[in-house]
Amino acid sequence: MDQLIKFVGGRLKELRKTQGWTQERLSQESGINPSYIADVERGERNITLKSFDRLINALGVTPFVLVIFFYIPHYVFKLSLTFS
């Protein structure tokens, strides 16, 4: 679970920077405290679903965009075992 929390935080930071936004700007757009955002991005806070929803809406992305790359390696590995 800790890996997922850190991964989502890192992806959130990537997407925020892709938008050219600071944590302060994301805070303004989402209504979430900038220190909360900083903690999430560092993987130090387990984000709530409500905050997750507010952040992805502010960034204009789907939940899929934040978590898919965490799961792909697991599925690719399982798939490769299936075809071995």
Rank of each mutant, 00 (worst) to 15 (best):
M1D: 05
M1R: 07
Q3M: 08
Q3Y: 07
K6C: 04
K6D: 01
G9E: 03
G9M: 13
L12A: 13
L12T: 07
L12F: 13
K13T: 05
K13P: 00
K13D: 01
E14S: 15
L15E: 01
L15A: 03
K17E: 00
T18S: 04
W21V: 02
W21Q: 00
Q23D: 01
E24I: 15
E24S: 14
R25Y: 07
Q28K: 15
E29H: 01
S30Q: 12
G31N: 06
I32Y: 10
N33G: 07
N33I: 03
P34V: 09
Y36I: 08
Y36V: 13
I37R: 01
A38I: 04
D39F: 11
D39C: 14
E41M: 03
E41D: 05
G43I: 13
E44I: 12
N46W: 11
N46C: 10
L49M: 10
L49N: 02
L49G: 06
K50V: 06
K50T: 00
K50Y: 01
S51A: 08
S51K: 10
S51L: 02
S51D: 05
F52W: 14
D53L: 13
R54D: 00
L55W: 05
I56P: 15
I56G: 07
N57P: 02
L66P: 03
L66D: 01
I72E: 08
I72P: 14
I72Y: 12
Y75F: 14
Y75P: 02
Y75E: 02
Y75C: 05
V76I: 11
K78M: 15
L79R: 08
S80K: 10
S80H: 09
S80P: 02
T82L: 13
T82I: 15
F83I: 14
S84E: 10
S84N: 14
